[in-house]
């Protein structure tokens, strides 16, 4: 167990430094890149907050489309398997399974959820959050 500040608090400190101290004082393209860097830290902070819930939602969504599977214990193994299952979904789309059917409706619904979650982390304003 680490002492305070927490990971999120540390990231917030660096993000604040980039926005409040670096950006206004560096000028030119440096200011632009400082903003990009601060935004990147904000993305990481949101990802740390949402990661567990989003991975679970992704897992459940794919299970509904492709059938149930045993969910790995470790997060790394879960990521690897999510990528493999998503690649399997891609194969089914390429075979034409989602061209026009109930399956298409389900796939679109799953993608709405999954991409919405990605945007909640990467750019919440894109979805009005």
């Amino acid at each position: 167990m680490q002492d305070r500040p927490t990971a999120d608090e540390l990231l917030a400190a660096v993000e604040g430094f980039l926005r409040d101290d670096v950006m206004p004082n560096i000028g030119g393209s440096g200011s632009f890149h400082a903003r990009v860097a601060a935004n990147a830290l904000a993305i990481v902070r949101r990802e740390l907050t949402h990661e567990e819930a989003h991975l679970a939602a992704e897992w459940d969504g794919l299970a509904e489309l492709l059938g149930a599977a045993r969910r790995p214990e470790s997060r790394d193994a879960e990521r690897t398997m999510l990528a493999a299952r998503t690649a399997e979904l891609c194969d089914r789309i390429r075979r034409g399974d989602a061209d026009d059917s109930e399956f298409r409706r389900q796939v679109l619904q799953h993608l709405r959820m999954s991409i919405r979650n990605n945007l909640l982390v990467s750019n919440p304003r894109w979805i009005g959050e």
Partner: peptide, 10 residues
């Protein structure tokens, strides 16, 4: 993998 792009190509 990007299922949305797969749908979009078709």
């Amino acid at each position: 993998p990007h299922p949305t792009f797969e749908l979009a190509f078709r």
